[in-house]
Design a protein around this nucleic acid. Structure first.
Length: 711
DNA sequence: AGGTGAACTTAGAACAGTCAGG
DNA sequence: CCTGACTGTTCTAAGTTCACCT
């Protein structure tokens, strides 16, 4: 797989193997843990439904419900019986009171704790305090406005909402022609471009600093699409991209970026306010009585397509979307979004079995793009919760499933054997399912089912292990997966068999597809698909690692390091990589320098401490001044030691994180209740683990989880 | 029973905002 | 107070899954 990503990837791999220690515990070891315990106590006190019943809710319910558009008789209210409603209200009331009380406490504490300072600073301190108070108040308000949907009854099958109202998508501004004094040159001569051609030329000019514009495929695709936008006259002149000079356009763009950076504070504020206004108007919708944030309310602006990896379509023109391309989805009985003046929507529909508010078809792949809600919304949150419940269900049946595919490894049916081996990989290595892809439509990447013979190498014996499979392929986003894994004999033998008489480019699992695999899985457990294994293995790994790595008496900083390490084990399992930050080496060196500095300081403090002690001793213990000096020096040493320790922890953490991305697993694979419970148990402030938007996203988990939660 | 498209989740990069340290 | 590093947010590409169609 000769890809231009290669050099970067190689780098990434080096790290990967060095960090493999962490990985030991992937795969099967975590199977047996626990098993018995988690029933019924994990939903927290407020949730009344026992888990058993809930599981049923989650899994079986949605099975194949026909999609139906809502009819005339839309109600504005969510389905709820009045009795339940009143009960809920009552509870809401008490819990709200509780929250209020908590807030009052914090406020009081702040007030009772004035800092004695000089007059001048005092005022600002007061101001700061006031700001803090305001913040707390705002937080409280937010908390009270939060829709506690997880305490509500779920809708009947397939229905995603009963009422949906929004303003439609926000369209990017029209193209602004470049000023007269900025020229485009072809073959040394200035050429005035038509508006359409100029716009596309500017897309390219703006990207000139990017590596993309040096790639042949990108240039070729761009040029082809650019020519389509040209007038026939332009087309006859401009025939070679290499003769195009976008220098002035590029310079203009850079100047603009620079100017934006150097704007005055006021101008920046004005801009911010204007943006906020757009968010306020378009960024929210009304869904079943609740205001919900929209995730992506802006129509994607036109530009040049930036595919990942070796994408055959990179550089193609991504066209401007008009209202005439956009389908609106909303309630029939609410207000319907108004299209921009002089325009109309492609269609307005009222389908409450889907969650999107607007959609359009994109011109590169012909796929549909959607406008949907933010991750902190009910619609997304509920689904997320459901996902983790299915994964927890897998925990209880995983032993049986593993037993089953172990048997299947010896099946007489080739397709069954292939399925078993694939499942073994998916379970042990957390590989993705791997759908078939159409050739030429996207980069050549694979997952488990689409692995080819060329992607694995078998070693009877390697580095002291037997039956080692060496994987080397590009996965999602063209991220390289490289791993050497000892496997059981049966799997190894099967792989040999599958590879017999095949070319490197042939499918390893020629009798298997993701559909087949998932069909089998869903027969083993309701709701089970290939990706559930990733969720399950990620979450169970976190839980296990936390158990293993957490030291009871540690301070918060050490706790965080332990958490990050556990998180990192998961990220490695899921192969979540990132390009090392450009400034990594530098900032690592900086940190090291600081550590060295601190070490010197510590040495100094220590000798001063000794000196003071000696002096105190020699003069007898009578002098109180000397005594306090000794104490002070002692404290200084202690302080220095603490700081040094903290910095060293930080450095370790940083180094280990160089090219591993923790965010993806944290956001998508780790049951938040594990983290919440851990924080509670070890008294780690949750804000150290989840930032604001993550806390919003996981509000359901934060609210319902007690410290004894077991995944 | 296999292909296809709609709908939705997962992903890393780019960008913007903030904050700590000189 | 300013600046660069870090953190959080936005963006949109690239996956998975499932129902529908033939």
């Amino acid at each position: 797989m000769g890809r231009e990503k290669e050099s970067k990837d190689e780098d990434k791999i080096k790290l990967k193997s060095s960090k493999m220690k962490l990985k030991k515990l992937s795969g099967h070891e975590h199977a047996g843990a626990g098993g018995d315990s988690s029933r019924g106590r994990c939903m927290g006190s407020k949730r009344i439904k026992p888990e058993e019943e809930m599981d049923g809710d989650f899994i079986s319910k949605k099975k194949s419900q026909k999609r139906k558009r809502i009819k005339e008789e839309q109600t504005e209210c969510p389905t709820d019986t009045s009795s339940k409603e009143s009960g809920k209200l009552e509870e809401d009331d008490t819990s709200q009171k509780k929250r209020k009380r908590k807030a009052e406490k914090t406020v009081k504490k702040e007030e009772a704790d004035p800092v004695p300072v000089t007059k001048k600073t005092k005022r600002t301190k007061e101001e700061i305090q006031e700001a803090k108070l305001l913040k707390i108040k705002k937080k409280e308000e937010e908390e009270q406005n939060r829709w506690r949907w997880w305490e509500e009854e779920k809708y009947e099958d397939g229905v995603k909402w009963k009422f949906l109202e929004h303003k439609g998508p926000y369209f990017p501004p029209e193209y602004q022609p470049i000023p007269e004094n900025v020229h485009f040159y072809y073959d040394g001569k200035a050429v005035k471009l038509s508006l359409a051609a100029e716009e596309v030329a500017l897309f390219f000019a703006q990207m000139l600093d990017h590596e993309y514009t040096t790639k042949d495929q990108f240039r070729e695709n761009f040029f082809k699409d650019w020519r389509k936008e040209m007038t026939s006259e332009e087309r006859s002149i401009i025939t070679d991209l290499n003769k195009c000079d976008f220098g002035e356009m590029h310079a203009m763009h850079k100047a603009k970026v620079e100017a934006r950076k150097n704007m005055t504070k006021e101008d920046k504020q004005t801009m911010k306010d204007a943006n906020q206004k757009i968010v306020d108007e378009f960024g929210y919708c009304l869904l079943d009585h609740h205001k919900e944030r929209i995730g992506n309310f802006k129509i994607e602006p036109p530009g040049l397509f930036r595919g990942r990896g070796d994408h055959p379509k990179q550089g193609m023109l991504k066209k401007r979307i008009q209202p005439e391309d956009v389908i609106i989805n909303c309630s029939l009985n609410g207000s319907i979004p108004v299209p921009p003046v002089g325009h109309h929507w492609k269609e307005v529909r009222h389908d409450n079995t889907v969650t999107w508010l607007a959609s359009w078809t994109e011109n590169i792949q012909g796929s549909i793009k959607y406008i949907m809600l933010n991750a902190n919304s009910k619609l997304k949150g509920e689904k997320d919760w459901e996902k983790y419940e299915i994964a927890r269900k897998l925990k209880t049946s995983v032993d049986h499933i593993r037993y089953q595919y172990n048997l299947d490894l010896k099946s007489k049916q080739m397709s069954t054997r292939q399925r078993a081996v694939a499942l073994y990989f998916i379970d042990k290595l957390a590989l993705r399912a791997g759908n078939e892809k159409e050739e030429g439509e996207s980069a050549d990447t694979v997952g488990c089912c689409s692995l080819r013979v060329e992607h694995i190498t078998l070693h009877e014996r390697l580095e002291g292990d037997e039956c080692v499979v060496e994987f080397d392929f590009l996965g999602k986003d063209s991220i390289r997966y490289y791993n050497k894994v000892p496997v059981i004999k049966k799997v190894f033998k099967n792989l040999k068999l599958f590879m017999e008489n095949k070319e490197p480019g042939d499918d390893l699992f020629d009798r298997l597809s993701t559909q087949l695999l998932n069909k089998h899985l869903s027969s083993l457990m309701a709701g089970l698909t290939a990706k559930v294994f990733r969720t399950y293995n990620a979450s169970i790994t976190l839980q296990q690692q936390l158990k293993e790595l957490t030291n009871e008496g540690d301070n918060v900083a050490a706790m965080i390091l332990s958490y990050n390490r556990a998180n990192r084990a998961v990220a490695i399992l899921c192969n979540h990589q990132r390009a090392p930050p450009k400034t990594f080496e530098q900032s690592m060196a900086n940190l090291q320098a600081k550590i060295d500095g601190r070490k010197e300081q510590l040495a100094l403090a220590k000798s001063e401490f000794k000196q003071a002690k000696k002096e105190a001793k020699s003069k007898g213990n009578s002098d109180p001044k000397l005594q306090t000096l000794v104490e002070r020096k002692k404290a200084a040493v202690k302080r220095c030691e603490d700081q040094l320790l903290r910095m060293e922890l930080q450095a370790t953490d940083k180094e280990e994180n160089k090219q591993i991305a923790l965010g993806t697993s944290k956001l998508n694979y780790l049951d938040p209740r594990i983290s919440v419970a851990w924080c509670k148990k070890y008294e780690v402030p949750l804000e150290k683990i989840y930032n604001k938007s993550q806390r919003d996203k996981f509000a359901w988990a934060i609210d319902m989880t007690e410290e004894d939660f077991e995944f």
